[in-house]
C-alpha cells in the first residue's frame, strides 16, 4: 500500500534530523504528527534546548511562513492578532495582520502572557480565524502553533489552566541530546544562519494532501477504537485522578494515532500507535486529585496503559 507523500515526508524528517536537529527526533516527530493531525504543539522545557531551532527548522523545511511571538506580561491580544491602522493617504483604516497570520507560529514562553492574551491566542488556535473590529479573517491552512513554556519558572507567570491545555494536541519536552551529539552541537556552534538559508523540502500542497489522506483514509479499526475507549474510560475511573481524558481528548488520541500510523508507513492504526501517542496527547489533559498533585501525570497514564491488555483477539 502506497501512502501519498509518505516517502517525501519521512525523507524530510530524516534530513532535518541528520543536518539540523540532531537528537531531537522524538520532538520532531511529534511536531510533525501535530502538523499532520491538524493540532498544536506545546513544548515544555527549560530554555536553550533548541525549541526555537526546532520550530525554525520545521518552518524552513516545510516551506511554511513563520511568525514568532515572545510573550511578556504586557503583551496585548492585538499584538498577536494584528490591528487596524489609519492610512492618512487613503483616509481609511488598514488592517495590519499580526504574527498569527502565518502557517507556523512560535509562541515563546506562553505562560508569561496574561490570561487575556492567552485566551485570545488559544481561541484563535481552536477557531482558526480571528475577528477584529467586526471583520472575520481566516487563518492560513495549515496552521500550526508551537508554544513553549518553562516549567521551572514560577515568578511572574500565568500557568495555563487545564481547560486551555486541552487545546494543545500534543505536549512534550525536548530533552537534552545524547552526550556525543551534544558535544558535536557544541563544537559546531549555532546553526541559525544555516537554517535561514535552507531550502524547502516540502510544498504546502504536499502537507495538505497528506493531511487529507490521514484524516480520510487511515483506518481506525473497531478493536483499536475499543482500546482507545477502554483507556480513556480507565483514566476517568482512576482513583488518583479528579478528571480523566474527555471525549475531545479521545478524538485527539485517535487523530494523533492516525498521523503516527501514517508516519510509520501504515494505512491503519495499531495499538502501538495509540500507546505511543497517548502520553504526549493525553497526559496534559489529566487533572489529578489535590492530594496527588505532585504526581507525574505521565507516570499515572503510563501505569494505566500498562495495566490494560493490548487487544489481540
Amino acid at each position: 500500500m502506497s501512502l501519498p507523500r509518505h516517502a517525501l515526508i519521512t525523507k524530510t524528517i530524516d534530513i532535518l534530523v541528520a543536518d539540523f536537529l540532531q537528537g531531537k527526533i522524538e520532538a520532531l516527530r511529534l511536531a510533525m504528527t501535530a502538523l499532520l493531525a491538524g493540532g498544536h504543539l506545546l513544548l515544555e522545557d527549560i530554555p536553550g534546548l533548541g525549541k526555537t531551532t526546532l520550530a525554525l527548522a520545521l518552518s524552513g523545511a516545510l516551506g511554511l511562513s513563520f511568525g514568532r511571538v515572545q510573550c511578556t506580561s504586557d503583551l496585548l491580544p492585538s499584538d498577536i492578532t494584528g490591528l487596524s491602522i489609519f492610512d492618512r493617504e487613503k483616509n481609511a483604516f488598514k488592517f495590519m495582520p499580526g504574527p498569527i497570520f502565518n502557517n507556523l507560529l512560535l509562541v515563546d514562553e506562553i505562560n508569561r502572557a496574561t490570561p487575556k492574551t492567552q485566551s485570545a491566542l488559544l481561541e484563535a488556535m481552536e477557531e482558526r480565524r480571528v475577528t477584529i473590529e467586526g471583520t472575520t479573517h481566516n487563518l492560513p491552512d495549515p496552521f500550526l502553533v508551537i508554544a513553549t513554556q518553562n516549567p521551572l519558572e514560577q515568578v511572574g507567570t500565568y500557568p495555563l489552566p487545564e481547560s486551555q491545555m486541552d487545546r494543545f494536541l500534543i505536549t512534550t519536552g525536548v530533552g537534552y541530546p545524547p552526550p556525543a551529539i551534544e558535544k558535536e552541537i557544541i563544537r559546531a556552534g549555532s546553526i541559525r544562519e544555516e537554517i535561514r538559508a535552507m531550502h524547502a523540502l516540502l510544498t504546502l500542497d504536499d502537507i495538505l494532501t497528506a493531511r487529507r489522506f490521514i484524516h480520510e483514509e487511515i483506518q481506525l479499526g473497531d478493536r483499536v477504537l475499543d482500546y482507545i475507549h477502554t483507556l480513556i474510560v480507565a483514566t476517568r475511573d482512576h482513583e488518583m485522578l479528579l478528571s480523566g481524558i474527555s471525549t475531545r481528548g479521545g478524538i485527539a488520541i485517535a487523530d494523533a494515532a492516525r498521523a503516527a500510523a501514517y508516519l510509520r508507513g501504515r494505512a491503519y492504526v495499531i495499538p502501538e500507535d495509540v500507546r505511543e501517542m497517548i502520553l504526549p496527547v493525553g497526559a496534559h489533559r489529566l487533572i489529578p486529585r489535590a492530594e496527588h498533585e505532585t504526581l507525574g501525570k505521565r507516570e499515572v497514564l503510563q501505569s494505566i496503559v500498562a495495566a490494560r491488555p493490548v487487544p489481540l483477539a
Partner: peptide, 9 residues
Amino acid sequence: LPPRCGLTE
C-alpha cells in the same frame, strides 16, 4: 509478551 505490549513493539 503481548498482551502486555503490542505485536509490533
